[in-house]
């Protein structure tokens, strides 16, 4: 499932972008160092294959619904983690741009959820050890399913965390998790079966292709730790700094601008620090019972938040906001129309 711009705050979106961009840069260097120029067309064409394969669906027995191939695992198995991550990132970029799946800010999250987890966690830590040195039909089958399920569970959990940390949606963590994980368990099993079917087909028809990816394995095993550590550092550092920005004043951008211009409201700093601490506290506390807006327990908090967000919640300003909003919309449309009229003579 794709994360969407509308549910993100810039802090979370930016952090994920930074983590993703770093990984893309790292993988690009790795692929370049491999000095195998036949990988360039191979990655691009296999990424296109993922799209094409998604057109082919099959009926899931007993349900009447249909499933199709997911992306990350099969790419990792065919290309090895680095090239597979780049290919998956490009698949998601095309989806974001052309199919408007998620949006541009959420792209960082989506690449993280659907690229990093399968390529750098599920593939090296689950698929490879399960398949082992001498692959057999049963091993490949098992490994493909387990790793696909695991990768997708992590991805779904990523969506939940990103959404809850952003806080635009009011879904409590617990509810969201218990909604997302089971759905993705089902999807993951189907995806695993499909991945297994395709990998087994290739393994029987042209085993040398799978060996090709294996040969890159020593390389991946060597530096996987580095990738994970680097990733963790990048995430913690950018996440920490960005979310401090973000929570020091709930509007990260506003804070940054004020910080740069150095103007007005110095006392903001104090409450900013306070807010940061509160945020940290929330972070540590959210696993046991982090409910944003469970009506009974935290209605005060919501009211507080609401009061903050909506400068003065009285009928007067609300109405003026409403009228003004409609006016500006009309204005935007009017400007559009005027521009269009002005252009007609040029066109005709």
């Amino acid at each position: 499932m794709h994360m969407a711009d509308a549910l993100l705050t810039p802090a979370v979106g930016g952090t994920m972008w930074a983590a993703t961009a770093g990984t893309i840069a790292y993988c690009s260097r790795k692929v370049k160092l491999e000095m195998d120029d036949s990988k360039v067309p191979l990655m691009g064409v296999l990424a296109a294959f993922i799209f094409a394969a998604q057109m082919i669906n099959f009926t899931i027995p007993g349900t009447g619904s249909s499933g199709h191939l997911g992306g990350g695992m099969i790419l990792a198995i065919l290309l090895g983690p680095y090239a597979a991550f780049l290919a998956m990132a490009s698949v998601l970029t095309v989806q974001a741009l052309f199919f408007a799946d998620g949006g541009l800010l959420a792209l960082g999250c989506n690449i993280f959820n659907l690229g990093i987890f399968p390529c750098f966690i599920a593939y090296p830590l689950i698929y490879r050890p399960l398949v082992g040195e001498s692959p057999s039909q049963r091993r490949i089958f098992l490994a493909a399913i387990v790793s696909a399920v695991f990768g997708l569970q992590l991805g779904a959990f990523g969506v939940v965390l990103e959404t809850v940390l952003s806080g635009v949606s009011s879904l409590p963590f617990n509810t969201f998790v218990s909604l997302m994980q089971p759905i993705h368990l089902a999807i993951g099993i189907v995806e695993g079966l499909v991945t297994a079917a395709v990998v087994l087909f290739v393994w029987k028809a042209r085993p040398e292709i799978l060996k090709y990816a294996d040969s890159a394995r020593s390389l991946c095993g060597l530096s996987l730790k580095k990738v994970l550590v680097g990733l963790a550092i990048v995430t913690v550092v950018t996440g920490g700094s960005l979310s401090w920005f973000a929570s020091a004043n709930p509007d990260g951008l506003e804070w940054a601008i004020l910080g740069v211009t150095g103007s007005e409201e110095v006392e903001e700093g104090e409450s900013g620090l306070h807010a940061a601490l509160a945020w940290l506290q929330e972070c540590f506390a959210f696993l046991p019972d982090y409910g944003f807006a469970q009506p009974e327990t935290s209605s005060e908090k919501v009211a507080e938040e609401a009061a903050e967000a909506w400068p003065a919640v009285d009928a007067g300003t609300s109405v003026s906001g409403l009228i003004g909003g409609i006016m500006t919309l009309a204005l935007a449309a009017l400007i559009g129309l005027l521009l269009k009229r002005r252009q007609r003579p040029q066109v005709g």
């Binding site: 840069a25 690009s28 692929v31 296109a48 780049l86 490009s90």
Partner: peptide, 15 residues
């Protein structure tokens, strides 16, 4: 990185 953008172009072309 160039490797990445080239790959995006190839993906779009062979889509």
């Amino acid at each position: 990185p160039r490797v990445f953008t080239v790959q995006l172009l190839l993906l779009h072309r062979y889509l």
